[in-house]
């Protein structure tokens, strides 16, 4: 208690210095702890975007839930999509706690999504027209997610780090589920193999974009500097992208896939993959909800929000008489 009182007496700068000492020492920050505004804002942005991306990410896969070609595959993809909604739920709760001092809640998150203020991940704006896409999403999109998320497993913000522990454990199953679909297809008929290559080509650019631009200057803004400064993550966008290449390029080649970028190679000297940049202007457009499926998927969520208005009304505290 004495400690608390003395902490309250500190100036903002002193509080900030204490805070930086704590995270430098590897201590976890909890929801009710003092934190710099910049830290809170960065976390809200990062976690609500992560949470809403999990939820929007269920939509391209949802398409394939009924269409999955066997009973086992139906069960597998149902389990995966359910997990993703669960991740969304978990993360939005973490974000909601952070938003409390601003008097904001879930309702605001949804409104921000609809207005375009809250963005969701670039990959979930893209079409998934074949069963090959369903497999590829699990294998490589979840694979990419594992790479960015394990990078934040030791995030200085405790509630986020703990949510990520659970999420990453499940993501491993998702990647296995995706890989199993891809394996079955590559070992299958010519038509099935073509499905995989086709999906791989289609997702290539989105996968490069997944990790974000290397420098803030590319798109005019990047939260990577702030998140590194506050020990929320450790690696840069480019380091993560390189990790992804090192893990998946050899695997893709070993199952007989052709790289959509014929110039791509590993440079022994710099120990870096050399590849052609995606169109970052296109990336900017996509995350501004101008991607090929952005409007359609937002429309799905808006429709359900609207159709279920009476349910929310019925469940509002005013009606809690039952």
């Amino acid at each position: 208690m004495a400690n608390m009182v003395s902490f309250d007496r500190l100036s903002e700068e002193e509080k900030h210095a204490r805070f930086m000492e704590r995270i430098a020492a590897g201590e976890k920050i909890e929801a009710d702890d003092w934190m710099p505004e910049e830290y809170r804002v960065a976390l809200i942005k990062l976690i609500s975007m992560h949470g809403i991306s999990e939820i929007m990410g269920a939509l391209p896969e949802k398409e394939w839930v009924p269409k999955a070609p066997t009973l086992r595959r139906k069960l597998g993809i149902m389990a995966k999509v359910q997990d993703e909604m669960g991740h969304g739920q978990l993360l939005l709760r973490v974000a909601e706690d952070l938003m409390k001092p601003y008097g904001k809640n879930r309702e605001d998150i949804m409104q921000d999504l609809f207005s375009g203020d809250l963005k969701f991940h670039n990959v979930f704006h893209m079409p998934a027209p074949t069963w090959g896409d369903a497999g590829l999403i699990g294998w490589l999109v979840d694979g990419a997610a594992i790479i960015t998320q394990t990078n934040m497993l030791h995030a200085s913000y405790g509630p986020y780090a703990r949510a990520l522990q659970r999420i990453c454990a499940e993501e491993v199953f998702h990647a296995q589920h995706g890989e199993a679909i891809i394996m079955a297809l590559t070992e299958g008929t010519q038509e099935q193999r073509a499905m995989v290559q086709d999906a791989f080509n289609r997702w290539w650019e989105s996968l490069l974009m997944f990790f974000g631009p290397a420098q803030a200057s590319t798109t005019g803004s990047s939260k990577q500097d702030v998140t590194i400064k506050y020990n929320i993550r450790t690696k840069t966008n480019e380091e993560l992208r390189q990790d992804f290449f090192s893990k998946y390029i050899p695997r893709a080649l070993s199952i007989g896939l052709q790289l959509p970028d014929s110039t791509m190679h590993f440079d022994e000297e710099s120990k870096m993959w050399v590849y052609q940049q995606p169109d970052w202007n296109k990336f900017k457009q996509i995350i501004k909800n101008n991607g090929p499926k952005s409007k359609e998927r937002l429309r799905l969520r808006q429709l359900s929000y609207h159709n279920n208005e009476w349910v929310r009304e019925a469940l509002s505290p005013m009606n809690k008489v039952v």
Binding site: I55, A58, V65, P66, M78, M85, Q89
Partner: peptide
């Protein structure tokens, strides 16, 4: 499963999809 992502709230989406599964 057609309801997935369309339920009244996210908690229900999780519960309902578990039931469908």
């Amino acid at each position: 499963s057609e309801w997935l992502g369309l339920a009244p709230h996210i908690e229900e989406d999780v519960a309902f999809s578990s039931i469908s599964q």
